[in-house]
Design a protein around this nucleic acid. Structure first.
Lengths: 105, 105
DNA sequence: TATATATATTCTTGTAAAGGAATATTCATA
DNA sequence: TATGAATATTCCTTTACAAGAATATATATA
């Protein structure tokens, strides 16, 4: 897994933007209105998300329509999916048991 | 989704620690050896991960055995899973089309 | 062409957070 | 009880980054 995606998501305002875009593409102004943030901050957050490949912009006249890009999210899902192994922790408990055995008492 | 989990993961060394622990619990010293980091930094990273609920420690004699905690990872998986909606982007393209219609030309 | 609107960028400042070095703490054992 | 090993914490310095304010850029329209 690459830390860039996670770093881009590791900010509550950017998280809100991403969650907003889950319902569909939005212009910058629409995001500003819905989140009550200042326009420059929203543009800067969008820049970070865009650099991380999490969103893309499509110009439309005066505005720019931002939408989510699936790829990094898919990658993140694959990564975290690989942790299903530990959902039941049999292996870990066994590991502890083996470790106990070799601890002199 | 909460930003704390993501912030804890948004560091490449912590990411490496988490990925190491995927294969099973490890002591601090084992993590130090495998990642070639200094022991205090590893302890500090483990502190961050622990505060975020991503790992837990079990004392064993002189050492502390760290293991992953499933809950936050499960939560992350659920969250990113909710994005499957956009895997095929029909809705988004439709959205764009509708937006085109109301753009004066 | 001048103006307004939407968006992006730059500059500055404050704050969080990461690494290094040193030290404290805890437990086992000679 | 003194010592060593494993781990955690503190202090310091540096870097990254988020917000605010001001400004630049681009496009539409009067």
């Amino acid at each position: 897994m690459n830390a860039t995606t996670l770093r881009a998501l590791a900010d509550s305002n950017r998280l809100k933007i991403v969650e907003l875009l889950l319902s569909g593409p939005l212009t910058v102004g629409e995001i500003v209105d819905r989140l009550g943030l200042h326009q420059p901050q929203v543009s800067k957050h969008l820049r970070v998300l865009s650099d991380a490949g999490l969103v893309e912009a499509e110009p439309s006249a005066n505005r720019r329509i931002y939408r989510l890009r699936p790829e990094p999210l898919r990658e993140l899902e694959d990564w975290v999916g690989s942790f299903k192994r530990i959902w039941d922790d049999h292996l870990d408990r066994l590991d502890d048991y083996l470790r106990e055995l070799q601890t002199p008492e």
